[in-house]
Amino acid sequence: MTKTILTVDDSRTMRDMLLLTLRDAGYRVLQAEDGEKGLEVLNHECPDVIVTDINMPRLDGFGFIQGVRGNDRHRAIPILVLTTESDAEKKDRARRAGATGWIVKPFDPVKLVDAIRRVAA
């Protein structure tokens, strides 16, 4: 079965890049432009993996992750966080919020797909 990935990022550029990479890798891709929209998508979709940015308007990545983990229906979905540098502080906060793993931005497509494969059942 085709796996579905939800990408949450306020940057169109980044969403497009994720789309291109993930589609080429054979995934079905859903997009949301911030944490709030991300949670809305989860009302009617159940992706296999979520890839999310941290810095976003309205609901940021940390809040979004907490929202996912706090919902019994979705708490088992692996969440990969995009962090710009190997920013230890943000990575740590994301981890504490419940992130499954992280990807350094700008992302290497091969590493992204590998990370998804590593966390996707």
Binding site: E85, V110, V113
Partner: peptide, 23 residues
């Protein structure tokens, strides 16, 4: 240094390749 080398290029990612290349 941090950013170098991560030039984005779309790749046809195949799992076979992944198995060969990664890690």
């Amino acid at each position: 240094e941090d950013m170098a080398g991560f030039s984005f290029q779309p790749v046809q990612v195949s799992f076979d390749e992944l198995d060969d290349e990664l890690p």
